[in-house]
Amino acid sequence: MTKTPLNTDNIIQRVLDKDIRAAGRLMRWVDDDLDKVKPLLAQLFEHTGHARIIGITGNPGAGKSTLVNQLIKELRQRGKTVGCIAVDPTSPFSGGAILGDRVRMQQHALDSGVFIRSVATRGNLGGISRSTPAIVHILDAMKFDVILIETVGVGQDEVDIVRLADTSVVLNVPGLGDDIQASKAGILEIADLLVINKADRDGMQRLRRELRTMIELGDFEENDWKPPVIETIATSSQGIDNLADAIFKHLEWLDTHQDQKHEVELERHHHYIGLVAMGEIERIVQHERASERWSEQLEKVRTREISPYEAAQTLLSYIIEAKR
């Protein structure tokens, strides 16, 4: 094991050499949003694009971590190496987080073909952290075959995962009654695969009927992918092989439908470029807030000489001019 300290000059090579410590550290830098990271990630990008990205989402308590754990096991048996990003919420009050998804993924801790990273949302909405796309790039560059992303269980608003994943898996559980009705619309739009987990519970038949009806009512064209409904009992690994089959079937479908595949890829990069640009703008504005001219504008708004809208416009024009 090399003992040279990690620095910005050697970290990318060491990530490409699959050095666990280097990868862990680079992910930390990404999460902390340090300025030095962007040029590094830019170097890494040409080594990405091989991994298949699978998003797993669903309500809190739907069994995402348990299912992901079983899926890792199944994928390993099929000879695939697996990177996994497990996202948990940051406390809005303290900024801290308890990242407990690993508790259900212990059996993979010594397998060099598995890399699990716990990530906190750090205030980001949409089910994943702002850092998640870059962490995917890092795992991709380390040549993991499949990258599983387990989102925060926030309910119906985890659309960000769709833009990032090749295949989005949405977990449902029987017995939630009217909640199912409420979540239908959102679920259909983002799911490539629908899973009924805890399929041994009361209400399974009804849920299956509802999901199937919902799909039948969907506006699918002949060439469209129609989400299958897969039943699993993740705690006893039942149905996991079917789930893995369905995932690979969807990936194959993407490979044979280039138009759809390009759309997925375009949407992914389109979204990410926007995200990076927004971050940059936020940083510039944050920096501007400490400036003299900001204080000047602020005072003018306080005395109601100008409106906040005019102040913002003036400050923006300063920034744009300085950038020219």
């Binding site: 303290s94 801290g96 716990s118």
Partner: peptide, 30 residues
């Protein structure tokens, strides 16, 4: 919980870990 409330990101391993497992987790999680 106390560390979370103080703003730390806390990764909890769960029970019955070996030292090898914990060190591997520590590296992956930095």
């Amino acid at each position: 919980r106390a560390l979370r409330d103080a703003g730390f990101e806390v990764i909890y391993s769960g029970l019955h870990q070996t030292p090898e497992m914990l060190v591997n987790i520590a590296l992956q999680e930095d």
